[in-house]
């Protein structure tokens, strides 16, 4: 069986995927606002459709010294924390527009040991090119589970 996913590029060769229906909107040159006393990987917000949306900086999560200072593109993602619940929204910073890819069940694989930080964000993973690619667990990322997680 084959599914369509979006491949998200965070820069420095770091990529991950979300499901086809989880990517809702792209915001070029987003106006983002700092919120002090928040985790480094989620320290900014943007206003989108009368909502204030938390912005995830995946590079800052992977390597705290790699915070994305100037964001050229943000992707708005939607998810449900529980089945049947109203959708919730978040954003992730990207370096270029997402690409559509087909993922086969046979592509499923484990993340590599060196991808320990990715394991915290992944609901599953698959082989794409040389390295395994994480499929983002959006409900986990935007919950408070990782907010006080040590870098």
């Amino acid at each position: 069986m084959e599914s369509i996913a979006w491949l998200l590029d965070f820069g420095d060769g770091e990529v991950a995927a979300v499901g086809q229906r989880e990517l809702l909107h792209l915001v070029p040159q987003p106006e983002i606002f700092d919120v002090p006393r928040t985790p480094q990987h989620c320290s900014r917000v943007l206003a989108w459709q009368n909502r204030v949306v938390p912005v995830w900086d995946v590079r800052a999560w992977l390597s705290p010294e790699s915070r994305t200072e100037s964001a050229s593109l943000a992707a708005i993602v939607g998810y449900q924390a529980r089945v049947g619940e109203q959708p919730r929204f978040g954003a992730v910073l990207l370096v270029k527009p997402p690409g559509r890819i087909a993922v086969k069940d046979a592509d499923a694989c484990e993340l590599a040991d060196r991808q320990a930080r990715w394991k915290e964000l992944a609901i599953s993973s698959f082989r794409h090119g040389e390295d395994p690619v994480a499929i983002l667990d959006l409900p986990r990322m935007y919950s408070g589970v990782l907010a006080n997680h040590p870098a």
Partner: peptide, 24 residues
């Protein structure tokens, strides 16, 4: 404040959208 941004002890308890900007 979105759950992913909540850190205990912060003096910020909500976010405020105004005139196209966002304040703490």
């Amino acid at each position: 404040l979105p759950p992913a941004m909540v850190v205990p002890g912060s003096p910020i308890h909500r976010l405020a959208a105004y005139e196209g900007g966002v304040a703490c």
